[in-house]
Design a protein around this nucleic acid. Structure first.
Lengths: 337, 337
DNA sequence: ATGCATTTTTAGATCGATCTAATTAGAACG
DNA sequence: CGTTCTAATTAGATCGATCTAAAAATGCAT
């Protein structure tokens, strides 16, 4: 049971060299003669030696580990984001420690602490709803390399990688304008989300710029079924909108279902634009959702790159990496009659 | 820049006690007098002391970290699985190290090694396609607590948590039989997947048991669009099937799309059953997919529990935790004319 | 006070690697 | 063959916590 761990000492002894030499071989130093290297490597393979990184990091100071905190993993938006991070870090030999805040700032604080205990060299934080700027300031002040991703509570606090939410909304509005729509609604998430203000602001601004009418903003909860009740709510508005822009694809898909249930046809009776371009959109029955693609995988990769840069050079200037969203026109938007 | 780390020594000095006492306070031992505890805790808060887990684990042997390897995070099936693991481990104060094998056994070996270096106390492995039993045998022999999850390359090698694939298929077949279907096809993934054999075996066996006809097995690649070409392939079979059971919801949704493109109506012209019950099924336009729910979150939680049990008691008997799947009848299956 | 049993505290060894600084082996040369 | 320079190796200190075993402080009864 209590199998004693194979240590560097065992390897050294078996290979007839010193601990120091064995250590050099493991770390691929070129200070060691080829013959010696081969000998040691053979022994390592035979003994199935696995270095104890605890000891290594204690002495060497680097854990080659990065902490990642996300609100949850419920939809592919989040998991693609994590995939992007993982792929990029993996390439640089880093390991990801994943934790989910469940959008609770309290929990998030605990996780941050735990990640530091676990000696993460840096942290990528997709901030939970309601995160205090203070939380981030403290970490940065303590010298913890940190990147805010997707959301932020202040871009002057740390590096940041995200999407241009304003542009996403503007693209949607312009697309609808080109199709002749003049009365447009926005289906948003209830609750205080930082990105909500950002998008609503851009929505109203762009409507004004294009001389269009805000036909009303409705708030729905984010449920697994996408809250199809939004359909009836929209149809009850006066003046009635001919198009709706949704906060994300889940809400948009819920709206589609709601429309069907009312016997209405998306793209004809009401044009619908989503946000995220979740991967399920191309699946299943038509019509397919017109939506704005935001490339979470790229944003994940970008935040990983930013973090590695900051770990290497803690004094570097603050940097933001904004991935440009792209409109994907499919079936749920059409010309107004 | 090079902010020197606050160590236990600093805390001890500031509080006027010894390192050992400070250490006891941190670990919440009741060996220490209340007055002393308070004093030390105050200092810890003031100095914002964060223990170096590297040092702790070097001495104490426990890292409170568990490695999780999955093939990828592409669909919600995987991310729900990870969520289940994370939630369960988090509750026990464990941290998840996540890595993606991209279904490549070579990569997987590298990751396993890395997780061991990072001193994971145990590993939950969703084995990559083509994993050799040898890989797992070696780990178990080396005394690494390990749980295979979802797939396995031998249930007698380690603990296992998964779903009853055979039952899933049997439920599907019986449901179709009840609707009057007699010629049923199976849409599978190309390639050698362990679960493929298992499901196909159950498929043929249950057909035999129910006196039904195998109208043909077709293989398609797993693409982001669900490979809609499966529709044409099925319709070209002779005798033509009246129903098809798909390997997963992605393939099933691709098939639905393919049917629509051919002007055919799922549930009327061909009944379709999926597998997984991915969360997007309730979203978007009807018809909604009839499918078998497999509860990945529960399976994740179960594998976490199994792992914690094995960490506590390395000598415990091998155990398998099989979550029972459930058929969710929706719109894509209907009576045969 | 004194002795004895507890309760608290602590010195010092220890975990397994890395780093520094010093040593040894090997090569090249006159 | 001795000298010098470079390449290869190594002894020993070190990282920051935990553990053990023993010492110091405290309480209590006599």
């Amino acid at each position: 049971m209590a199998v004693k761990r194979t240590t560097l000492m065992d390897v050294a002894r078996a290979a007839g060299v010193s601990r120091a030499t064995a250590s050099l071989v493991i770390r691929g130093s070129d200070l060691v003669a080829d013959k010696t290297r081969e000998k040691v490597e053979k022994v390592i393979a035979e003994l199935d030696y696995v270095p104890n990184s605890g000891a290594a990091r204690l002495r060497g100071q680097k854990s080659r580990t990065v902490g990642v905190i996300i609100p949850n993993l419920v939809n592919s938006f989040f998991s693609e984001f994590v995939e992007g991070i993982e792929a990029e870090l993996d390439e640089q030999g880093y390991q990801v420690m994943l934790a989910s805040s469940r959008d609770d700032p309290e929990r998030q604080s605990g996780l941050l602490r735990r990640l530091r205990e676990h000696d993460a060299e840096g942290i990528i934080l997709f901030p939970a709803e309601g995160t205090e700027p203070d939380t981030i300031e403290k970490l940065v002040a303590a010298g913890v390399p940190l990147v805010q991703a997707m959301r932020h509570v202040g871009r002057d606090l740390s590096d940041f990688a995200g999407s241009d939410h304003g542009l996403a909304v503007r693209l949607s509005v312009r697309h609808l304008r080109d199709l002749g729509h003049r009365r447009i609604s926005f289906v948003s998430l209830a609750g205080k989300v930082s990105t909500r203000e950002e998008r609503l602001g851009a929505f109203e601004e762009e409507l004004r710029a294009q001389g269009l009418v805000n036909a009303g903003v409705i708030d729905v909860p984010l449920e697994w079924d996408g809250s199809p009740q939004s359909a009836a709510m929209l149809m009850a508005l006066d003046p009635r909108p001919t198009a709706a822009i949704c906060f994300n694809d889940i809400l948009a898909s819920g709206l589609l279902r709601g429309l069907f249930d009312l016997g209405l046809m998306p793209g004809r009776d009401l044009s619908v634009v989503g946000h995220d371009n979740l991967s399920f959109i191309d699946l299943g029955a038509p019509p397919r959702l017109t939506t704005v693609q935001v490339f979470p995988r790229q944003i994940g990769a970008a935040s990983a790159k930013l973090l590695l840069r900051r770990i290497k050079d803690p004094g570097a200037e603050l940097k933001s990496e904004i991935v440009t969203p792209r409109l994907r026109v499919r079936d749920t938007t059409g010309p107004v009659d």
